[in-house]
């Protein structure tokens, strides 16, 4: 288990999420793929926090936790994104009786 192997796993998770969010028609699938991408980013941040020396570590040893603080913020933003995203999905489903992104064309014209 090294920094590189951890980051490669995180990159694979991120790219699977990227493919899913670009190539699926169901809007819930897109939301789930975005969650996969968030997880890849979080994994990278925490791995970097463990292995890489941050600037100014001599003065403040607590700087090694900065990556974990960022991950906490990302988890919070992901929770907000899911709450709002599912609200939009429900509004869309109520209007068009469908969660297919190919049919979501109300904002066109």
């Amino acid at each position: 288990m090294t920094l590189e192997s951890m980051m490669i796993v995180a990159a694979i998770l991120f790219c699977i999420g990227l493919y899913g969010s670009l190539a699926r028609r169901n809007v819930l699938m897109v939301l789930m793929s975005i969650e996969l991408m968030f997880n890849g980013v979080n994994l990278t941040l925490v791995a970097l926090a463990k292995y890489v020396a941050p600037a100014g570590i001599e003065e403040n040893i607590a700087a090694v936790l900065t990556g974990q603080v960022f991950a906490v913020f990302i988890i919070t933003v992901a929770a907000a994104e899911v709450a709002l995203g599912l609200g939009i999905v429900f509004a869309m489903y109520r209007n068009t009786e469908s969660v297919d992104l190919s049919n979501a064309t109300e904002l066109r014209n």
Binding site: C15, L22, R25
Partner: peptide
């Protein structure tokens, strides 16, 4: 869970990234 018509470019983009 159907793919849309961009799934081949999307797979290429993800692989390159």
């Amino acid at each position: 869970n159907l793919p849309n018509r961009y799934h081949i470019p999307a797979a290429t983009l993800a692989a390159v990234l």
